[in-house]
Design a protein around this nucleic acid. Structure first.
Length: 334
DNA sequence: TTCCGACAGTGGGGTCGCAAT
DNA sequence: ATTGCGACCCCACTATCGGAA
C-alpha cells in the first residue's frame, strides 16, 4: 500500500509509476480579472525563490526554477527535509518556495543576498532565516500524481510530513478569491495565486494557475530616455523622476508596456525637448546611451514595490497622463 | 475565421564574480 | 582600485506564428 493510496483510496488507483527526479515546475499566468469560484482555491503569493525538492533514497536535492542545484545555498533546508518525520520514508518530488520574512511579509529584498551564497558554512551562519513553503506534490512513493486533481495532491502533501520550521505547508482558502485578494493587499502581501481545484501538474505555464497581484501605480515625470538596442525602435526605456520639494529625484527606468507605434512617435516628441544636463538631482544616474529631456511629460507606471535604493521593481508603462502637472508628481507611500 | 499558447526579444532592479581597465 | 559585463534571481510586456476551437 502506497501513501497516496492510503490517503486517497480508490482515487489513487491506476496511477502510472514515476521515479523521483527533477521535472520542470508549473508556472502561473498573470491576470487582472479577479474572481471568486467554488472551482478554485487561493494561496498566498510568496515572494521568494522557487524550489523543487527531490527526495530519493534518503537523499535530498533542491533545484531552482532553471534546474540549478540549491543544496549549498540552503543546507539547513536540506537537513530539515532529511530529518523530518515522514509517514514511511517515501521518495517524492515536492514543489515550493524559499522565503525570508520582514515582519509578517515575505521579503525578496531580504532573501536576495542569501540567494547568492554558495558556501554551506557561510549559509548556515547567515542571519537571514529562510523557510520553505511546500504547495504541490507531483510524485510520491513511486507514483506519478501529476494527473490527479490539485486538491488531492495537496491532501497527500499535507499528511506526508510532520511540518516543523523551517519547512511549512502552504494553506489555501476555498472559493473567496476576491475577498482574499483584498485582504492580501491590505496586509502588504504581493498578491495571491488562484489555482483550479482539479488542475493537473503540467510543468509549464498554464492558465490553471493565475496570479492576482497587489499592484502599485502612480505617476512619474519623464526625465529622459535611452537608445533602443537590437530590433527595438524609438527608444529603449524612459527615465523617471518625482518631486521632493523643489528637487526632482530619480526613480529608475521603465522599458516595457509600449507598442511600436508609441515607441516611434514618442521618440519624436521627446527629441524636441532634449537637454544636455539631467533635470534630476545628481547621484547614481545611468549614463550609457542616455538622453535627458525637459521634465514636461507625466506617465503612469505600474510596479510591485520600491527597492532599497529608491528604484521601481518590475516597472511597466501604463500610459501618458495629460491631466497632471509635472510639479504635482510626488512619491506616494502605501 | 478567430482565438490562444508558446516562443523570442526587449526592457526593469539587485547581487555576485571575474576580467579588463 | 575601479569599472564593466554576464549570469543568476525576481519579473512585464509586445510581436509573431501555428494549431486549436
Amino acid at each position: 500500500m502506497s501513501l497516496p493510496q492510503d490517503v486517497l483510496g480508490e482515487r489513487a488507483a491506476g496511477l502510472p509509476r514515476a521515479e523521483a527526479e527533477y521535472l520542470p515546475p508549473m508556472l502561473a499566468t498573470l491576470t487582472h480579472n479577479h474572481f471568486s469560484s467554488p472551482d478554485w482555491i487561493f494561496e498566498r503569493k510568496l515572494d521568494g525563490e522557487r524550489c523543487l525538492v527531490v527526495r530519493k533514497g534518503g537523499k535530498v536535492r533542491l533545484y531552482s526554477r532553471n534546474r540549478k542545484e540549491l543544496n549549498r545555498t540552503y543546507p539547513e533546508l536540506v537537513d530539515a527535509l532529511r530529518a523530518m518525520h515522514a509517514h514511511g520514508t517515501p521518495d517524492f518530488v515536492a514543489d515550493g518556495e524559499v522565503v525570508a520574512f520582514s515582519g509578517q511579509v515575505t521579503s525578496f529584498k531580504r532573501l536576495q543576498r542569501r540567494m547568492q551564497v554558495k558556501d554551506p558554512e557561510e549559509a548556515r551562519s547567515s542571519r537571514v532565516a529562510v523557510y520553505l513553503y511546500l504547495f504541490d506534490l507531483p510524485v510520491c512513493d513511486g507514483l506519478d500524481l501529476s494527473s490527479l486533481p490539485l486538491v488531492d495532491r495537496k491532501k497527500v502533501l499535507k499528511v506526508l510530513l510532520e511540518y516543523e520550521d523551517p519547512i511549512r505547508y502552504t494553506a489555501h482558502r476555498n472559493q473567496e478569491g476576491v475577498d482574499y485578494h483584498r485582504q492580501a493587499c491590505r496586509k502588504g502581501w504581493e498578491g495571491i495565486i488562484a489555482k483550479r481545484r482539479d488542475a493537473a501538474y503540467t510543468g509549464k505555464r498554464s492558465r490553471d494557475w493565475l496570479k492576482f497581484k497587489c499592484g502599485r501605480r502612480q505617476e512619474f515625470v519623464i526625465c529622459g530616455f535611452t537608445e533602443p538596442e537590437g530590433e527595438r525602435v524609438g527608444f529603449g526605456a524612459l527615465l523617471l523622476g518625482y518631486y521632493d520639494g523643489d528637487s526632482l529625484r530619480y526613480a529608475g527606468q521603465v522599458g516595457t508596456g509600449f507598442d511600436n507605434e508609441f515607441l516611434r512617435s514618442f521618440r519624436e516628441t521627446l527629441a524636441d525637448i532634449e537637454r544636455a544636463e539631467p533635470p534630476v538631482e545628481s547621484g547614481q544616474l545611468p549614463s550609457k546611451g542616455v538622453h535627458w529631456v525637459e521634465p514636461e511629460y507625466v506617465g503612469e507606471v505600474g510596479f510591485t514595490e520600491w527597492t532599497g535604493k529608491g528604484r521601481l521593481r518590475h516597472p511597466r508603462f501604463l500610459g501618458l497622463r495629460r491631466d497632471k502637472a509635472p510639479r504635482q508628481v510626488v512619491r506616494e507611500e502605501a
